[in-house]
């Protein structure tokens, strides 16, 4: 098929935007769009033609939880620079206070931060169960270095993304099949320690499979409040600080 033929191009773009181009054909079209600028432009034009149909739809307010999930996914609820002190104080707070719902506009408010921690605490039970499961499996394999501490990094829907085991010498990380990495980004692991101003990098996380990270010399010397995962450009943080914190996880002593 000659995709540069205006008629074919328009017909395909129109059906792509309409939504009737499905499966293989749709994926092939997406690839072609990356290669052929005129196909891309034709698609944009059809988006402009057809999306006017949506003006006829009456807006429907989504549930407030949607915004909370979005801001959690994007790590808005954890500020980068002063993360350590906030985690330290808020973990204490959250154990005594009820969860609070944050207003939509209050993106980086302390209350939404607490909500996040509260939700973290609620899903800790899941993490604990996972840890137990892994520990039980571990007991059968005697050769491997014994894990001393462990954490499960969970996504927005409490799905386990990485399993982290800390042994005497290293940090063993496994990514799970729940995790879909962005090709043009890396994911960096940090520890947040009490009384230490900035998070300390522990290295880049594997995008798939398993990886052994060297244990930072400070790891056993500081009081670790939490681990954090940030989204970074390839090869990690350009300035030694997390660019965008995606998740935090508690470290459990075994």
């Amino acid at each position: 098929m000659n995709y540069r033929d205006p008629e074919i191009r328009d017909a395909l773009a129109a059906e792509y935007v309409l939504g009737t181009l499905r499966g293989q054909a749709r994926r092939r079209f997406q690839t072609l769009m990356m290669q052929i600028p005129s196909l891309r432009e034709s698609t944009w034009l059809w988006e402009q033609h057809l999306h006017g149909m949506n003006e006829r739809l009456t807006p429907v307010e989504p549930d407030q939880a949607v915004w909370q999930h979005i801001s959690q996914r994007l790590g808005f609820t954890v500020a980068n620079a002063d993360i350590d002190t906030r985690v330290a104080t808020d973990i204490a707070d959250v154990q005594t206070s009820a969860p609070s719902t944050s207003p939509q506009s209050n993106v980086v408010s302390l209350s939404s931060f607490k909500t996040r921690l509260w939700q973290g605490a609620a899903s800790f039970a899941t993490a604990a169960a996972l840890i137990l499961a892994v520990v039980l499996v571990k007991q059968q394999s005697i050769d491997l270095p014994v894990a001393q501490q462990m954490a499960v990094v969970q996504g927005a829907e409490s799905q386990a993304l990485w399993l982290i085991e800390v042994t005497e010498r290293s940090i063993e990380v496994r990514s799970t099949s729940n995790f879909t990495p962005l090709a043009n980004k890396d994911y960096e692991l940090w520890m947040i320690a009490k009384g230490v101003e900035n998070p300390i990098s522990l290295g880049l996380l594997p995008k798939s499979g398993q990886l052994s990270l060297p244990k930072n010399s400070q790891f056993d010397e500081v009081d670790i409040v939490a681990l954090a995962v940030s989204l970074e450009p390839l090869n990690g943080s350009p300035n030694g600080l997390p660019t965008e914190v995606l998740y935090t996880a508690e470290l459990a002593i075994l």
Binding site: L57, P59, V60, I70, V107, V108
Partner: peptide
């Protein structure tokens, strides 16, 4: 700018939700 993004969400989410719900 996270606040701007929150505002963008506030102004457009009803419309976008109607589309995905439909």
């Amino acid at each position: 700018d996270k606040q701007a993004f929150a505002n963008l969400y506030k102004q457009t989410s009803g419309q976008l939700f109607a589309v995905s719900l439909k």
